[in-house]
Amino acid sequence: MRALLSLLRGDPEADRVVPPTGVTASLTVLTAAAMAFLCVFALALSLATSRLAERWDSELARSSTIRISAPAAELEEQTRAAQEVLRLTPGVARSRILGEEEQRLLLEPWFGPDLPVDALPIPRLIEVIETTEGYDVEGLRLRLAAEAPGAVLDDHTRWRRPLVEAANRLRLLGWVAIGLIAASTAAMITLAARAALSANAQVISVTRLVGARDSYIARAFVRRFTLRTALGATIGTAIGMLAIAALPSAAEEGAFLTGLGFQGAHWLLPVLIPILGAVVAFIATRAAALSVLKGVT
């Protein structure tokens, strides 16, 4: 903490010793701003896909459907048998048979609004809502096969798994992108710090000869690069957040790209970007400076 305060406070006399290098200073600020801007989007992507994955997972996981396809004479009997099985199955909160109107609405996108549902051999559908503990899918399938052979259980796994997996992969890619941005920032800061150290070779040599410790020389560079990075990252983060806020809003069920952004407390997360940027710059510059100084007698 003391080191951090000392870093922020600085030492005007020591700062005078190492002359500022105009070009590297501007480039560091610009690079940090660009990286922070990209980082805001990567974070937004990660959080959006995370929300999406959770929604798909929870919404689809809690419900399933039983489809009963049987000759008209057996349909009612098998439906009753299936309902009885469901009633006795632990983990099933409730079940209900979908009415004709609901079935018509389900088929409307394909067959239009005037579909005579009662005239068609459409299977009977039972919606099953499970408890938070859930039920034993394989056990239910076996019991249905025994009591209602025409009943087929669809727990939506087939649809849910690839969707959730895709969303999770996307979330992972977002975090990988953030990691790559941090690594690229560290690499660029290291190069800039090495350029500045090289440009100040005479200053380093003279200060060493008059008794400067490595930590003293390194501190002058570390402070400058850390503060420049923090400044650039703050600007980039602010612009990124404004850009995210300006994206068109979409309903919850909208495509995920239009739902890109932050919600609630997640708006506070980008505030960490300048802090993390400064930490990356601190570590990168210190490592570069101490490595260069080892070559100076």
Binding site: E13, V17, S205, V206, T207, L209, V210, G211, Y216
Partner: peptide, 29 residues
């Protein structure tokens, strides 16, 4: 080195600092 004063042939000054700042450099560092 703080106990050894060195006068180099080429003086080894920091040209962006004033003479007073150069003289005070060992104190600063």
């Amino acid at each position: 080195r703080r106990r050894i004063g060195v006068v180099h042939q080429d003086c080894q000054f920091l040209d962006h600092l004033s003479l007073r700042e150069n003289v005070a450099l060992p104190l600063t560092v």
